[in-house]
Every structure is written in C-alpha cells, then in structure tokens.
Nucleic acid binder design. Structure first.
Lengths: 215, 215
DNA sequence: GTCTATAGTCGGATAGAC
DNA sequence: GTCTATCCGACTATAGAC
C-alpha cells in the first residue's frame, strides 16, 4: 500500500526517478542509485512517496503534468473542431503536429519518452495515469480534427487510424531515435535537421488529409 | 568476458530470455526466473552462454535471425531498385509495407519488439547486432526504393526522412499498442482490424510518395 | 549436459538519532 | 525532514555431484 505522497522540498528526486526508471525500468532501477544521484538519503523516498512503487507513480504524474502544461500552451483557447471549416481543421492538425514534433525533438522529452515507452510495452498502474492525464485529451482532439478535415469523405474509424499513423510518423523520431540517426546519418537532431523533419511531416500530413476514403 | 556460446538442445532458453529481457530489461530480468520459466537450472545459462550478458547477446542474435529470415521471405529475389520504374518502385514499397506491417501485427513480434525498443532507448552491445543483422539492409532498401519512386522530385535526405516516417506509421501499432487500442477502442487487432490498418497504410504511402518536394 | 548447494553481493524497507 | 545503521530477502556466479 502506497502512503499518501508528502510534498518534497523540490523535484530533484522526481526528475532523477524519471531518468532512472526510464533507463532501467521499475525493477532495474534501484532506490539507492536514485537517492544517490539526487544527493539525498534512500529513506527520504520512503518518507515522501512511501516506497519505490509510490515514487514510480509520482514520477508518472509528474510527467503527465509537464507534458499537459506544455501541450496546453500550444493548444490553449483553440476552438471546437466542429466549429471549424475542413481547411481550418487541417491547419489545426498541423498546429498539433508542430507541438508534438517539438516535444519529440526536445532534449527534455528524452527521459519522459523512455519512461512512457516502457509503460506501453509493459503497462503498470502508471500507464492509466499517463493516458488519462494527457494522452486521452490530446488524441481525442487530434481524432476530432481529423474527422472534421475529412468532411464526410471517411468514417470515424478511419479518422482514428489516420490520426494514429500521423502520431506514429512523429513518434519514430523519439522512440526509434537510434535507428533514425543511423538511417539519416546525422550525428544529432539540431535546428537544421528539425526543420527538415518538420517540412516532411507537414507535407505528409497534408497528403494524408487530402486523400479520399482508402480503397 | 563472455565465453563462446555452446549449442543448446533447443531454443527454450533463448525464447524465454527474449521475453523476460524485453519485459524487465537486462538488469530487471533475473537468470533465476528465466531458467525457471524455461524449466531448467540457472547454471545451464552459464554453461551455454557464459552468463547473463552472453545470454542477452545470444537473444539479440536470435531475434535478428528470425526477423531476417521472415523479411527475406517477403523480399527474396527482388530486383535492384534502380532497375525499376518509379511506379514499380511504389509497388515495391507497398510490398515492404505489407511485410513490415505483418511483422508489427503478428503476435510473435511482441516479445521481439519489447526487446528491440529497449535497445533503442538504452542501447547496449545488442543494438549493433540488431542494426547490422536486419535493420540496416531493410532500411537501406526502403530508402533506395523511396528515392527511385521520387524520380528526382526530391533529394536523398528527403528520401531517408520519408522512409522513416513510413516506418513510423507502422511502428506505432506495435510500439504504442496500448495507446493504439485505447484510441481505436478495439479489444485486439484481428484480421478485420489488420485489413483496415493495411488500407489506411497503403493510402498514406501512396499519398506520401505522390507529393512533390516538401515546402 | 543438467542438477544442487553455497558463497558473496546488493536490493528495499525500517528504526531511530538529530 | 534528513540522515546512518541494520535486517533480510533475492540476486549472480561457481563448485562439484551425477
């Protein structure tokens, strides 16, 4: 049973936990190493989060808050998809693509991504938190915008699938970064490379949203 | 130092290792649990593979062999991309998409994917083995076909990026399966769902390969 | 080639000083 | 609220019987 998290002085412990859990997994990461890297005693994990599991859950919530805040800034005050013209819906999708791609390419998303991908492969209680906190609202909006961009040319299921494939083509640059660098023969993804990716992503999304119903 | 792997009686130990390493990671998985699940003694890991690290490397090689064999079957005796017309190159890309999507949706790829994604997030010596054994030849061919399909409408860098995004939109169905099921509200991906994904993937690839140079 | 037994290390949790 | 000290279980590796 996890005890109720107490408020820590700062987020050093959480940031370190996200990094270590992301790299080594829930079982592979040790509370000793996390505490040492955060320059505190191991027992403060027990004190603040009730133990390893509590720290893991708190780390997930911390990621959700940060991503939620970041994407909300890019989406704040946007109109309801059904109030948009199909053309405006395409533009709104491109706006979400920019926000999401920025997240995928930002250095600070690397530890979040490692943590989240582990939850996709072997979900724990933390996955529910991540899904509810930011995946569900964001994917819901993307699907709604895709549906509106279709203007009846395709059905709801196809909207969901097209939205998924659009996410996938951006996700690959974070989740398969090692392969992406090997394939492009880039050393790193800087501003120039990010611009090239953005151009291709926009062209792909426009192409995907222009095509009529599949088959 | 890993000793030279000896030939085991069967692959039970390797298959179990792939599953456990994929779920728990190199540090999280225990040789005890692997040996127990494979119904053998822990010391046989030492005997056959020289220890935990040796087993991990052997597991990567085993994955590479199986994926290599599977994709070779889908690609066997294909002509050189530069000998194809742009239209034939598009068809060849669609053929690779079918092969790769089949792999992403096949139940047996789940443990392989878990193992591979871990190597993407935190590469070990096993990543080099995976890259050389099947990622490099397959991605090389996909890029060459994409380049040919462009027929000069875009440059080599854009071919590599378009190839990556095409991979990404298929990868999402394996790597972010939990999210894919949540978004589509499917319980599982069976034959009907696979057909729907394939239709959308083909339409997207055709759209992506039809568009001219981006921006 | 597969097993049991064991040595040595490291992990998480907890008690209690301050 | 943060620390040190300590318990106990689980881990990897290895020796040696069969």
């Amino acid at each position: 049973m996890a005890t109720k998290p107490k408020r820590p002085i700062d987020d050093r412990l959480l940031d370190t936990a996200i990094d270590q859990f992301g790299r080594k997994g829930l079982e592979g990461a040790s509370t000793r190493a996390i505490a040492a890297a955060a320059r505190t005693a191991m027992s403060s994990i027990t004190y603040h989060y009730g133990g390893k599991d509590g720290l893991h859950i708190a780390a997930a919530r911390h990621i959700g808050q940060q991503i939620g805040a970041r994407m909300a800034a890019a989406l704040g005050g946007q109109p309801n998809p059904s109030d948009l013209s199909p053309e405006a819906a395409v533009d709104a999708v491109l706006g979400m693509v920019d926000g999401f791609l920025g997240l995928m390419l930002a250095p600070e998303s690397a530890p979040w991504a490692r943590f989240i991908v582990r939850e996709q492969l072997e979900p724990t209680k933390a996955f529910t938190i991540l899904w509810e906190q930011f995946m569900k609202p964001l994917s819901g909006r993307l699907v709604a915008l895709t549906e509106r961009a279709g203007a009846g040319r395709w059905d709801a299921q196809e909207s969901r699938l097209r939205a998924l494939t659009m996410i996938g083509q951006l996700l690959v640059f974070r989740v398969a970064r090692a392969t992406a660098l090997a394939m492009t023969q880039w050393d790193d993804i800087g501003a120039t490379e990010a611009a090239a990716i953005r151009r291709v992503a926009h062209a792909n999304v426009r192409a995907i949203l222009s095509a009529g119903k599949s088959s």
